[in-house]
């Protein structure tokens, strides 16, 4: 059985499957840069099911308003307490958008309030070095969404460990392409995804 399977959270509200190519792209990068025994196919796991605990790193995204059910909320709370990490990325790249507002509310209700993650956090040097913090995305630089370049990611910490990681940078758009197309990029923009996986597997 592989050491790592990339899992995408399926939640009752919203469009959880808005970035279907992200898993394959991150799986490709993890296999490309590390020796981690990664499953070649990702998994989709309902946020409110006990299967969530089979995947200590789970990715969640969407454009639409997010409303967790009671089961999703309680499962997420337990998931974080046991050592899981949920990575939430705003596919709208818009701090005034519905996803952002509702996701923040739900995270605060289930686990706790999100706070800025320092740009010298271990996440940014878990494998590749990101001395300036989270890498910018083309969607930020092109002025789409909220027309902001977000300086920080946000997180809910359990001790010194990240339990919830939140991004307004729209990595879901940035990474949502076929892995074969990386050859057209001068710099692989999924490297931060590798850091996220290595961090989750080691901290």
């Amino acid at each position: 059985m592989p050491d790592f399977t990339f899992a995408t959270a399926q939640y009752d509200s919203g469009d959880w499957d808005s970035a279907p190519m992200v898993p394959a792209n991150i799986i490709d990068s993890v296999a490309r840069y590390t020796g981690i025994d990664v499953a070649s196919v990702g998994a989709i796991v309902p946020l409110g099911s006990r299967d969530l605990f089979k995947y200590p790193l789970v990715y969640l995204t969407g454009h639409l308003p997010v409303r967790f059910s009671d089961a999703e909320r309680s499962t997420l709370k337990e998931f974080c307490a046991r050592g899981g990490l949920l990575f939430i990325d705003d596919h709208n790249h818009d701090v005034d958008g519905q996803f952002h507002r509702t996701a923040w509310e739900e995270v605060a209700r289930a686990v706790g309030p999100l706070k800025d993650l320092p740009n010298d956090h271990a996440l940014f040097k878990a494998f590749f070095r990101f001395p300036d913090g989270p890498p910018t995305t083309s969607h930020e630089l092109n002025g789409w969404g909220d027309n902001l370049v977000h300086k920080h990611l946000q997180a809910v910490l359990e001790g010194d460990r990240i339990a919830i990681l939140y991004s307004s940078k729209d990595y879901s758009s940035e990474w949502n392409y076929h892995p074969d197309n990386k050859r057209f990029l001068s710099v692989d923009n999924t490297k931060f995804g590798v850091n996220l996986v290595v961090y989750a597997l080691s901290r």
């Binding site: 050491d3 590390t34 020796g35 050592g83 989750a200 597997l201």
Partner: peptide, 12 residues
């Protein structure tokens, strides 16, 4: 160990 869930959660 190697980077993976077993090492991470054993350390934790």
């Amino acid at each position: 160990g190697r980077v993976g869930w077993e090492s991470k959660f054993t350390i934790a």
